[in-house]
Design a binder for these strands. Structure first.
Lengths: 161, 161
DNA sequence: GTTGAAAAGTGCTGCGA
DNA sequence: TCGCAGCACTTTTCAAC
């Protein structure tokens, strides 16, 4: 069976053309199909089929607008290392933390902290409010360590090979 | 001068309609203008003008495809707390770290670590390689602490008010 | 699976209110 | 400043290769 390699799993179905399309779209999701087609020297129909395939696979989750939070008054970005009293309180703590709008990213991690969160606030006062009133009030949270970002030196997507 | 409020600064030019448009587009950048227009009960032309304004202002930086890194074989996400020998080595270290493709986000922070980075790798072996061969080799880096993400419980955009 | 062209839908621009 | 209408462009579909 010669084509068994192609059918063995969902990952193997991604070929060079798919990755080329992804690379262009990750850079600018507004790129017209016709332009991608010209760049990669295939027809517009093919681009359409491939993108549909990747969407169906769940590889492409959607396209989102990138905005500048500072331009709408969100100036402070910080990372939070959160210590839980017991590891078993993780699920309850996560549910409570999800309700805090200022938290934009959260991970359950190995190492010193149980939970690692990224938070975006208007200013340092707003950050203090969220920390003292919202986060410290969550049941199971022992204490937190705050790392305020003074400069975002890198912000990019993963590079495909 | 009655309309002085409208002209006093770039931030003041954002009104409720702009924020409503942003909210819809941040959720799904592919939403057709006509659909936004229907939802917000204004004309398509108005949507066009407002979006152009926000792009010109730099509020909208672009639209990017959201992909699932696990589906293309990137399974490990980790955070790195990096200690520098001296704070003055920050700029040189950043330049070296920018060349490491696996680093997707990096911040200059207050607190215990000088630099905070987010890194995405294929597997734990790949992570070990990048840590030992690429990151530890950067001049000025004293040591690093690694927090491997076992679960990404929140990943969202900032909520507009 | 890929192509190319035709059909359907979306975005852009200028005139009128 | 907004809305409408026509034009240009993009996306989608489909028969044929």
């Amino acid at each position: 069976m010669k084509n068994s390699e192609v059918k063995k799993g969902i990952n193997s179905e991604i070929d060079k053309l798919d990755l080329d399309i992804l690379r262009i779209l990750m850079d600018n999701a507004d790129t017209p199909f016709t332009e991608i087609a010209k760049t990669l020297v295939v027809s517009g129909g093919t681009i359409h089929v491939r993108i549909k395939k990747m969407k169906d696979m769940g590889l492409i989750k959607g396209s989102y607008l990138s905005i500048d939070p500072q331009k709408i008054g969100y100036d402070v970005c910080a990372f939070l290392g959160i210590y839980l009293e017991k590891g078993s309180q993780y699920h309850d703590a996560v549910e409570s933390l999800k309700k805090i709008k200022e938290i934009v990213e959260m991970h359950y991690c190995t190492g010193a902290y149980s939970i690692f969160a990224k938070i975006i606030c208007r200013d340092t006062n707003h950050l203090r409010e969220v920390l003292n009133e919202n986060i410290q009030a969550v049941k199971g949270i022992q204490r937190t360590e705050t790392f305020i970002s003074l400069e975002e030196s890198i912000k990019r997507q993963i590079e495909l090979d």
